[in-house]
Design a protein around this nucleic acid. Structure first.
Lengths: 342, 342
DNA sequence: CACCTTCTTGTAAACGTTCTCAGTAATCCT
DNA sequence: AGGATTACTGAGAACGTTTACAAGAAGGTG
């Protein structure tokens, strides 16, 4: 009556609930947040809230409580199955905690990554998981002053005080080379992505490690580099390789490059695996989709993402703890592309 | 001096800026939001803000202005290249508008989709783009009362008052069949996903349309149905098909199914396209990765997503406008999997 | 019975913005 | 020169929560 403000279509707020339940907003808030109250008020508030379909306003809540209930994941490329696997993994742990997930695809652009970290100052999110191929000093700087916790998937520069989780891709690449050697291959080529990136350089090192441990000679001509880690460049790099060389095996630095390599090999009329064995890295969803199915080094993407998410949650709880670095061991998954079945 | 509260490490707020620039918070806010002020205050505020690296707090801003600057995209499966293409597209228009993008993968679970729509009441987002395979009456109900604008990618039930954008996949499927007929195929099979879903049913209809318009007989035995739209089921369905039939062409209801079909065909020792021509749908990134490259019907995923985003933005601006339904015409993209090169 | 706990509650102050309103100074017109 | 418009500003009230604090009620103890 009082103000004829009794129009019913307004979005209900906690005040509405409180009034309806005949308690103060404080009590209503307490009930709604599971803080101890008398069973009587609890019941009244719950019933009132249910009756009018009350839902707390996210903005008001985060303004006051300084928690947004959101985390963000920034990755180089949504199109890459590795990252979608990570997304799935992160979403799982986020959901278990009742957190929302904000996604951002950076295009592997450093400036974009930095902008993302800077944007955290808006505090639209409680934490960030940043997957990056190439962490520069600029990153280190920015990360040092990040407004909210950040966990990095990749390899931060030496003294970046930040939690991170890394793949041991060097070891993985070496394992792959040994597998190829074990199955009788002797001219093993590498189709790599840009070697200034962390994955590019460590996979190259791993490849060389592998050759060395098998007693195979190192030949630069057997290394072809694509301009990024995607299928197109993989195909072109393989093409260039085949014009000059006759490898009997190819290690590709990731599955997309491997898919491109496969296309090139088919075009050259080479049989996989008889003429050339092929191994990818990442063990992504792609592996079961190609023909032949792709042998690949599992770098534990899903696992790494899960770990990153957990590290993030822990740091959000406890911001002052020592930064931790965790790693996941690679594991070779053998499929049809690397072994000839009798 | 006053309260020794001058500790410098606090996060700067607009009050800090105002004090530093010697103006009221109101003026500071005006400058920061590009509302007309005297050049003098403008300069002072801008300088102050820059000096202390002020960034407005997202929660406070949305609480007051009732805009979050975020939109959400909910899709069945992040792993599916079609949806990642959509994500990329949406992110592009979001970024152009300075909006953040929140992602959610529903696993094509109706309950999860409904929960997402209900969650909008929290108002953590200004609008939602919902891609769904199967829009039920429950969806219609929930959508009718959605707290913020929703645009649907898919086919809402008749009288759901909501903007939507749809693919004309029925026509696309028919086109594909005609293409196969034109290139000499006569026993054209369909590898479909679940037929109770919108895409499943319309692709079946399109397939039948195609057969009819080519004067080919309809044979139920040439239709195999997988339990979802992914590669595994595609392979199994194709396997079952090949045990009974000898099709000389297969239309797969999407590219993932097609990838599975390809694996099955290879296993049966059949050459693609010589023995069996294969056409997928969606024209996703997968098409260039398979061998042979996959002919596919482009259903304009990127375009549809872009349209959806634009519809959403327009509706956010103007909530009362009439709901619109827009469509995108399919286009066949011929690659190696459907035509034998001489 | 007086006192001290322990529970439960309401009041009111934040949180950091935006925005209405009213007031003052400056400019324009006739 | 006087009034009318215009341009700019500051005070202060929202926005919808959570939470520190104090106060009242209930229960326990000597």
């Amino acid at each position: 009556m009082e103000t004829a403000e009794e129009t019913h279509d307004e979005v209900p707020t906690i005040t509405t609930v409180a009034r309806l339940a005949n308690v103060s907003v404080a009590s209503a808030s307490r009930v709604l947040n599971g803080i101890r109250t008398s069973p009587d008020t609890a019941a009244r508030v719950t019933r009132a809230a249910e009756a009018i379909g009350y839902v707390p306003n996210a903005a008001a809540r985060s303004l006051r409580s300084r928690r947004t209930g959101q985390i963000a994941f920034a990755m180089p490329d949504v199109g890459n199955p590795v990252y979608t696997a990570m997304v799935a993994s992160i979403q799982e742990v986020a959901r278990a905690q009742g957190l929302r997930l904000m996604l951002h695809s950076t295009g592997a652009d450093a400036e974009d990554e930095l902008a993302m970290v800077r944007d955290l100052k808006h505090r639209f999110v409680d934490g960030l998981i940043l997957a990056s191929l190439d962490l520069t000093d600029a990153h280190a700087d920015e990360l040092r002053h990040a407004a909210v916790p950040v966990v990095v998937i990749g390899r931060p520069t030496k003294d970046t005080p930040v939690d991170s989780v890394r793949a041991h891709s060097r070891k993985g690449a070496a394992d792959a080379v040994r597998h190829l050697h074990d199955t009788g291959r002797r001219r093993i080529a590498l189709v790599n992505g840009p070697e200034h990136t962390a994955p590019g350089s460590s996979r190259r090192l791993g490849y060389l490690d592998g050759l060395r441990s098998c007693g195979l000679p190192r030949e630069e001509a057997l290394i072809a580099v694509g301009e990024d880690f995607m299928a197109g460049p993989g195909r072109e790099a393989t093409d260039r390789l085949l014009e000059e060389e006759r490898p009997d095996a190819i290690l590709a630095a990731n599955d997309l490059l491997a898919a491109g390599a496969l296309a090139a090999l088919h075009l050259w009329g080479l049989d996989v695996p008889r003429d050339v064995a092929l191994v990818g890295m990442d063990n992504s969803a792609l592996c079961d989709v190609t023909w032949p199915a792709l042998t690949s080094v599992d770098l534990g993407s899903a696992e790494r993402a899960r770990l990153a998410a957990e590290l993030l949650l822990e740091r959000i709880e406890e911001p002052e703890r020592e930064p931790r670095v965790v790693g996941v061991d690679p594991q070779l998954v053998v499929r049809a592309s690397s072994v000839v079945v009798a």
